[in-house]
Structure formats: C-alpha cells, structure tokens
C-alpha cells in the first residue's frame, strides 16, 4: 500500500513535467510554418518575439505574482544593446543576444530591490517609472541611441557565420522561433521545478511561504532578474531582425500590449503568452486590414469581454472536452481520487 502511494505521489508530482501531445503538436506546427507560410514570415517573426516577451512577463506575473507596467524597460534596453553593438561593428547576432540578456539582467537585478517592496500599486508605479526614465534617457542620449530618429545603420552578420538574414524574413523567423523555443524549454523546466513551486507558493501566500522557510525576497529577485534577461533577449531579437531600433521599444504601449497579450492567452500558463501573441497579432492584422482606424476599438472590446467573461471559464470548458476525448493518461491507484489540479 505504501509503495502504491509512493508511486502515485511520484507520478502526480512529475506529471506537470511531462510533455503533452498538444504541446508537441504546437511546436511542430510552429516549425512547419517555416515551410508552409513563406509570405507570412515577417509577422510570424513578430509573433515569436512578442510571445517570448510575454513568457518573460508571465514568469514574474503569472508565476511569482509581481505586477509590472514597465516591462518594456528590459525589452527596450535589450533592443538598444543589440542595436548599438551591431552599429559599432559587432555584428554577430548571438553575441548581441548575450550582451542584451546581460544588460537587461543587470537592470532587472538592480531595480528588483525597488520593485519588490510595497504593494501592487507601488510595484505598478515603480515599474512604470523605471520604463519612463529609461525612455527619456534614450530620447536625450541621441549620440548613442539616435534619439527620436531611431538607431540607424544596424547591419547584422550571418547567424553562426552561416545564415544571412533575407528580405522575406525567413531566416529572421527561424532565428526568433529557435531562440524562443529554447528559452521556452528553460522556462518550462523552471516552472515545474521545486524552485518554480516555491514561486507559486509565494504568489499564493507570501506569509505562509516564509513560514515554510522560503527566503521570499531572494527567490523573487532571482526570477525578476531572469525575466528581465528574457525580455532583453526578446528586444534584441526585434532589433536584429528588423535592423532598426526606435524609442518605440521603450514606449508605454509596449508594456501595456504585452500585458494584454498575456491576459488574452492566459496568465500563469506558459503557452498563454504564445497563444496570446498569436491571437493578438492575427487580430491586429485582420482587423487593421478590414478597418484600420478602428483596430484599437475592437481590441479594447475583446479585452473587456475576455476579462469579464473570464478566460478561465472559457478555456476550462474546452479543456474538459479535450480531456473527455483524449481520455486519462495518468494511472492512479483505485483507492485514490482522480481529480486533477491545473496543469503546467
């Protein structure tokens, strides 16, 4: 009986770490679009980048409960880091990504001490403030950033010395998708690890987390720094694949859009960021083709509906249906109930 329960415990705990069929399909389809949607690679590239940016926000918002209205600070810093390096002749893309990740991580680490104190409102204001300050610095330091004209003369070398960027965006998309996929895998490992579990516990109840012996602040600083690095990489991808950086990367609407993307797709669910990015960009594309001046109106309306109707309720229904069709995969002893909590 005891080993029976031990097996059940082990299977249930590791269940979240296993890859589902749907997940594998998702990435196979994403890879397939490299061949089957050649004329859409520019927008797909943007989707991959926004998806990565949203994953970054989800790591702090969805998994650690840190609200932010200034996540573009890291995105923008990463974009400028990669852009400025490339303009000054350091054209290797991967080097640029690494540098962007490091500068953004440093900014994340330093600002984490400001962000992690106080209430949600304080956090919103501090993150917003940091992004505004950075935006103004980029505006003023035009000798470095090009200011309001944007950063001109960004030319990228081939990736790994092999793959040149092309005008159709195919290399760009393959590059962004690969980077996003690799960072996704790391994020996925993190959220199902004991460290990830401790983050969720902090999000749920920081008082109790402390009572279990969790060093709450240290854990939050770590994830905030990591999320900043992720956002920095996303920004660098945008700078490198579009070979241009403007003040837009630090703008408030960047921070707001990524929050919107995450709300559309689902908070606290890594695919939420990716699905949200797809829905957001496709909607933008479709609606602006149909009625360009009312794009904001429709996205606003959709946002209100999603929040009020409750995305939870909408997706939960789909998920229950899916479970019914797919059947149960995890075997549990007959003596134990089979209710399952939320996956990944």
């Amino acid at each position: 009986m005891s080993t029976n329960i031990a097996d059940y415990v082990s299977a249930t705990l590791t269940r979240r770490g296993r890859w589902g069929v749907g997940e594998i399909l998702f990435w196979l389809i994403a890879a397939a679009t490299l061949y089957f949607l050649p004329e859409r690679h520019l927008i797909l590239n943007e989707i991959a980048i926004i998806g990565l940016f949203a994953i970054s926000l989800d790591l702090i918002l969805g998994y650690a409960g840190i609200v932010s209205l200034g996540h573009a600070a890291f995105f923008g810093l990463g974009a400028y880091t990669a852009g400025i390096l490339a303009r000054n002749g350091i054209a290797d893309p991967l080097l640029g990504l690494g540098a962007a990740a490091i500068t953004a991580a440093i900014l994340g680490f330093v600002t984490s001490f400001l962000v992690l104190r106080g209430s949600d409102l304080t956090k919103l204001m501090v993150t917003l403030g940091v992004a505004l300050v950075l935006g103004e610095i980029a505006n003023q330091a035009s000798w470095l950033t090009g200011g309001a004209d944007g950063l001109q003369g960004v030319t990228m070398g081939p990736i790994l010395g092999l793959f040149e960027f092309d005008i159709f965006g195919t290399t760009a998309y393959a590059y962004s998708l690969t980077v996003t996929f690799l960072l996704f895998i790391v994020a996925r490992r993190i959220v199902v690890s004991p460290y990830g579990l401790s983050l969720r516990s902090i999000r749920d109840n920081p008082l109790k987390a402390r009572a279990v012996g969790i060093p709450v602040n240290r854990r939050l600083i770590a994830i905030y720094t990591l999320a900043a690095a992720y956002a920095g990489v996303a920004g660098a991808l945008l700078a490198q694949t579009t070979q241009f950086v403007s003040l837009d990367v630090l703008a408030f609407h960047r921070s707001a859009d990524v929050m919107l993307v995450l709300v559309i797709g689902g908070v606290g669910y890594l695919y939420g960021g990716l699905i949200g990015a797809i829905v957001f960009k496709v909607l933008q594309d479709v609606i602006s083709a149909w009625t360009p001046q009312y794009w904001q109106f429709w996205i606003g309306l959709i946002l209100v509906i999603i929040v009020l109707a409750g995305r939870e309720r909408l997706t939960e229904r789909v998920r229950t249906l899916w479970k019914g069709v797919a059947g149960r995969t995890a075997k549990s002893p007959d003596t134990l109930p089979k209710t399952s909590a939320r996956e990944v």
């Binding site: 082990s10 690890s193 004991p194 579990l197 969720r200 969790i214 909590a341």
Partner: peptide, 26 residues
Amino acid sequence: MTPLETIGLAVSERTGGGRDWWRVTG
C-alpha cells in the same frame, strides 16, 4: 496548490531543493 504540492514544497525547501530549478519536482 494541492496538499501534495504543499507538503512537497515544505519538504524540498527543508532539504535544500528550493534552489533547484532544473529538476522536476518529485
């Protein structure tokens, strides 16, 4: 969280597993 995750959290924190970000819980 589930009771399983809650107890698992406390046990792995105590045994120093809380900094472990690569292995799957359990």
